Amino acid sequence: MNETVILKLGGSVITDKSGECAIDHARLHEVAEVLAARPAARLVLVHGAGSCGHPEARRYRINDGLTRENVPGVHQTHAAVSSLNAAVVGALRDAGVEAIGIHPFDLGVAEDGRLVSFETRHIAEMTEHGIVPVLHGDVVMDLLRGSCIVSGDQLVTRLAVALASRRVGLATDVPGVLADGAVVPRIDRSTAESLAIGGSARTDVTGGMQGKIRELLALADAGTDAHIFHISKLGQFLDGTEHGGTIVTKRGRP
């Protein structure tokens, strides 16, 4: 039986983060063609919000908790990310991929910014039948704050553990984690301490590259490596060949 692959498309890959919900439809269709060419892959797809969600979450200060003034931001943020999700699913289906969008707002409950409940049994069942679930970073209700933003990166780690996936990839707009302009081929907890990893240069309420590394180190501790690579190397990652990016792994693992 094929192994389930968890693939994350960064928000900066499929949107222009300098605009507001500026979706890169051409890039989406390129990605869809790569995935359609590999129909045997059991895939769960997660995408970031990019410019569809981050501006709204920042404007309404969703991560700071709910008040009478910012309650409308829950709808505005969710609507923005849902519109991007619809575009991703549409591109996949146009290419012949049996994709269905799934909204974390409907499934998850958080406490102080971390998911404490998230249903995944139906996601596992979907992959058994050749359906590609497409999830995204989203606003969810939070037992302490009222609301919070759950990043696509947090979803990746949650799904990888729940579905026992050992293949996790994050496609980005850079060739990997960079230090002094060069790709860092391998990161574990010891090397991460010595790296000066910047956050997103544009609006990002979920922590940019620093947030990714934190999530993926926790996943590595649980025994699953994660690969960070440029979107142009998506086919190589799916085929299990060299992608020239970064592997986040457990300390001491060769």
Rank of each mutant, 00 (worst) to 15 (best):
M126A: 15
H227I: 03
V183D: 00
G96E: 06
H230Q: 12
G181F: 09
A91H: 04
D64E: 13
D180E: 15
T120L: 02
G146D: 02
A179I: 10
T249L: 12
T67C: 02
A26M: 14
L92N: 03
V71D: 01
L238E: 09
E69Y: 02
L107W: 13
T157V: 13
V168Q: 11
H54Q: 07
D173I: 01
G130F: 08
V31R: 01
A80N: 01
A164K: 15
G252K: 10
G96H: 06
H47I: 04
H54K: 08
T172R: 00
V132W: 01
A192F: 13
D106P: 10
V81L: 00
E30L: 08
A226Q: 09
V248I: 15
T127A: 08
L45N: 04
R68S: 10
T67A: 04
H75V: 15
A164E: 15
H136Y: 07
S147E: 00
E30H: 08
L45H: 02
T249P: 12
A222V: 04
L143H: 04
L115D: 14
G130P: 10
D16R: 07
D204I: 01
G252A: 15
I14W: 07
G198M: 15
T206D: 03
N85Y: 07
A110S: 15
E111K: 15
A79K: 07
A57V: 08
I102P: 08
G235I: 03
E3S: 10
F118A: 11
S83H: 06
A226M: 08
R202K: 13
T203V: 11
N85L: 06
G207D: 08
L159N: 02
S147K: 00
T127M: 06
G207Q: 09
A162C: 10
L107N: 02
G48E: 05
L135A: 02
G96V: 07
H47K: 05
V34S: 06
R121D: 11
I149D: 10
E20Q: 13
S18K: 15
G240A: 03
G235R: 04
L234R: 06
A164P: 07
I23F: 10
I187K: 05
N70K: 03
A226E: 07
L159I: 11
L219C: 11
I231P: 09
T206E: 09
V71I: 09
V174R: 05
A49R: 05
G50S: 02
V140C: 04
V140E: 05
L107I: 10
E119T: 15
T4A: 01
R121Q: 06
D106Q: 14
T172H: 04
A182V: 14
R93S: 12
E20L: 13
E125I: 06
D112L: 07
G19P: 11
A95L: 06
R186G: 05
S83E: 05
A41H: 12
T4Q: 09
G108M: 13
F105E: 05
S83Y: 07
G152N: 08
C148N: 09
E125F: 12
H243R: 00
F105V: 08
T203F: 07
A22F: 08
R158E: 15
H243F: 00
